[in-house]
Design a protein around this nucleic acid. Structure first.
Lengths: 308, 308
DNA sequence: CAATCCGCTGCAAGAATTGCATCAGTCGAG
DNA sequence: CTCGACTGATGCAATTCTTGCAGCGGATTG
């Protein structure tokens, strides 16, 4: 679509922070790009960018414009995808920002299932903390967000939510490994490994201990659940995760999980959402529907997700 | 905004129904326009138009595209208006599709009030029956619709609704002229002048008589309320109107109005609405707010406007 | 103070768009 | 049936617009 080339150019400049860098990324000369920007500004009557010694930054008017630009760019994707859908072949690109708990089991499975039916659809999976995930919905980097305990700002539109109690994860020979559920105070008698504060699991634990005399003294802190799980396996340490991040057959593997009593730690919710009011490409809509169906089928649904 | 010239071209062709006619309207040659359309189609990979012997018509893909095109065009208006608003001057253009009851008193007054504060804002007022009004929201010809008893299709988003009982309008020397309210059966003893079925007032009367033995035998039928009112003045005939179409000082004028008993004719509602999900330019938003405030202040508010 | 990075501009070559004349097809009136 | 009027499409030449190169002036950094 030639006519939105200027829009792409603006977007590129915003992302690059300088005209020359953006020009390189677009593999055109800075001259051409510069003049297009100037032409746009003349057209609009006001400058889109503030000129700084080290590059450019959006002006107030530019801030308004870039919203429009990005929504138009992604809306054209939707249009193209809808038109392609007319001729039978579903094609398109789906970008998902999600919590890392989805990485090991859930998403690989779901994407594989979808792509088996629609091989022309490509995916991008971005591992993001809950705040960044919502930000990427806003600037149209991601089409969908799948996050545990999101901030849920006003532009987040919930498509689906399921309850996720916190589970304790430990090596199979850990003293607590045989239990079905454990109390939090039992866990805290052993060394624990925690995710950093950015993550919803940590947030849930923090909340649980807010009005309690119990305190957590994590032996290890990391922003990688992968690391935490592997570490726990070695050191008789307990780490924490939500069920969707655990494969069902885990009992046969090296580590074991059991739910923490809900009196101790209130279950959080995993949210599937999109940018409010945005019309998604068909491929995205269908994939979101598949996710929602799978979630509803395999996990308990969350009580009335109250939108703000 | 140069970059959406191609979009304007497509829109023009759709509206004109032929490339040559559209080219004339745009004051360019048909050659240029034709080639731009071809180029767009090549870009998109599918034809936007079906070629007919007498012109062109949108293909299925084109139907999808034109939605995007129109929303993009009007969204750019919003952006420009928001940017202009930054520098203090509110400018822009407001297009309203509305029932004719609004023409004599309400809208002229409201627009004058608004333009006194924002002279750079221009208006377009389209007199439309309720069905056409909503259609024009859809194709972005109108920003706002203000209609009595609209069809309210799913893409109509209600901003405000007020109750409007039906009034009988007659010459000051009419036998019923002294009453405060009248019964419908009393009216029907005199010759009556009715609007055509397209209009909400007629619809309300039709509904009222559906389960009644009373029948209307209109002496005159017209699609012009103006005509009906003037005619009634001469012939001892009764016509019908909603309060918002009557000036408050009417008692001192040539004709007189009195409410019809609500047991006989259920009051209808006047709806102010926009296209669902569309972000309106600042000027439009502000004007809509003014209308809503005035309506709420001067007229009884309608009971819970249930959206579909 | 020199090096570097930035946005901007004059000039010439290159690319894209436009307008004219014209073709092929369809329709409706006479 | 024929003729005229209308449609969209196309080859070619003139024009306009866009691009890239080289270089300027200014601000920041080390």
């Amino acid at each position: 679509m030639r006519h939105l080339l200027p829009l792409r150019y603006i977007d590129a400049v915003v992302r690059a922070g300088s005209i020359r860098k953006a020009a390189e990324a677009l593999s055109i000369t800075s001259t051409a790009l510069n003049r297009r920007i100037l032409a746009m500004e003349q057209d609009l009557g006001v400058p889109i960018f503030e000129r700084l010694p080290r590059g450019v930054r959006l002006s107030t008017a530019g801030e308004i414009l870039i919203q429009h630009v990005r929504s138009q760019l992604s809306d054209m994707e939707r249009v193209k995808s809808q038109i392609a859908d007319l001729s039978g072949v579903r094609r398109g690109h789906i970008s998902i920002a999600c919590s890392q708990a989805l990485m090991p089991v859930f998403l690989p499975e779901q994407i594989a299932i979808y792509r088996r039916e629609h091989p022309a659809v490509t995916f991008q999976v971005l591992r993001r903390d809950r705040e960044a995930a919502e930000q990427e919905l806003l600037d149209h980097t991601a089409d969908l967000a799948l996050v545990f305990e999101p901030v849920r700002m006003s532009s987040f539109e919930t498509l689906m939510a399921i309850r996720q109690p916190i589970h304790a994860v430990m090596g199979r020979r850990h003293p607590l490994a045989r239990r079905d559920t454990v109390r939090l105070r039992d866990c805290l008698r052993y060394p624990i490994a925690l995710p950093t504060h950015l993550y919803g699991v940590r947030h849930a634990l923090d909340m649980a201990l807010l009005h309690s005399s119990l305190r957590m003294r994590p032996a290890v802190e990391s922003d990688s659940f992968e690391f935490l799980r592997h570490y726990a396996r070695q050191d008789h340490t307990i780490s924490f995760q939500i069920p969707i991040g655990l494969s069902p057959g885990r009992r046969h593997q090296d580590d074991v999980s059991c739910a923490i009593d809900e009196r101790d730690v209130k279950p959080g919710s995993l949210y599937l959402g999109q940018l409010r009011g945005r019309a998604l490409p068909v491929a995205v809509t269908r994939f979101a529907a598949q996710l929602a169906a799978t979630l509803a089928q395999n996990f308990e649904e969350a009580p009335a997700a109250t939108p703000r």
